[in-house]
Amino acid sequence: MPCPFKYLFGVDCPGCGFQRSVLALLRGDFQLSFKLYPPTVPLLICFLAAAYTWLFKLNQNAMALKVIYFVTGFFIFFNYLYKMLFQHIH
């Protein structure tokens, strides 16, 4: 599925590569998955933690959940920053 952000602004969005990375991960190609979008595994862990918390009606303000969200956001931010600063220089 094409990225509407990239279509509108001409640059990758912070999530560009996630779909291809998940597909590579499902095929068992961990190296390609990481190359396509390094935050895939932390993001999937974040989704699973959120779903588990919601499904079992656990404390949604738990410190562990906040840490998972923060670390994932941090990883996404720095991956995007790296991509914008170093991989688009030609």
Rank of each mutant, 00 (worst) to 15 (best):
residue 52 Y to Q: 10
residue 26 L to Q: 07
residue 38 P to T: 11
residue 67 V to G: 11
residue 59 N to M: 01
residue 9 F to H: 12
residue 85 L to S: 12
residue 1 M to R: 03
residue 49 A to M: 12
residue 70 F to N: 00
residue 85 L to P: 04
residue 62 A to P: 05
residue 82 Y to E: 11
residue 90 H to N: 09
residue 61 N to I: 03
residue 30 F to A: 15
residue 80 Y to V: 00
residue 27 R to S: 15
residue 26 L to H: 06
residue 36 L to K: 14
residue 60 Q to K: 14
residue 34 F to T: 13
residue 44 L to P: 05
residue 31 Q to M: 13
residue 4 P to Q: 10
residue 1 M to S: 14
residue 90 H to M: 06
residue 83 K to I: 01
residue 64 A to T: 01
residue 80 Y to K: 10
residue 69 Y to L: 14
residue 39 P to V: 06
residue 33 S to G: 10
residue 14 P to K: 09
residue 54 W to Q: 10
residue 14 P to E: 07
residue 8 L to R: 15
residue 87 Q to W: 12
residue 15 G to I: 05
residue 1 M to I: 08
residue 75 F to P: 02
residue 40 T to H: 06
residue 69 Y to F: 14
residue 5 F to P: 01
residue 54 W to N: 05
residue 65 L to R: 01
residue 67 V to T: 09
residue 45 I to T: 10
residue 54 W to I: 12
residue 49 A to E: 04
residue 34 F to M: 10
residue 84 M to H: 09
residue 83 K to L: 14
residue 40 T to A: 07
residue 11 V to N: 11
residue 7 Y to E: 15
residue 23 L to Q: 13
residue 87 Q to N: 09
residue 3 C to P: 02
residue 30 F to P: 02
residue 71 V to A: 12
residue 20 R to T: 12
residue 26 L to I: 10
residue 11 V to W: 08
residue 73 G to R: 00
residue 43 L to Q: 01
residue 48 L to A: 13
residue 88 H to P: 01
residue 64 A to K: 02
residue 57 K to R: 12
residue 70 F to T: 13
residue 25 L to T: 08
residue 49 A to S: 12
residue 9 F to M: 06
residue 54 W to L: 12
residue 53 T to H: 08
residue 65 L to P: 04
residue 10 G to K: 02
residue 58 L to V: 00
residue 26 L to F: 09
residue 47 F to L: 15
residue 52 Y to F: 14
residue 18 F to M: 10
residue 47 F to M: 14
residue 16 C to V: 02
residue 20 R to G: 11
residue 44 L to E: 03
residue 43 L to H: 01
residue 76 I to N: 06
residue 60 Q to Y: 13
residue 87 Q to T: 14
residue 20 R to M: 07
residue 66 K to E: 13
residue 89 I to D: 00
residue 56 F to E: 07
residue 33 S to Q: 08
residue 83 K to C: 00
residue 77 F to H: 08
residue 36 L to G: 04
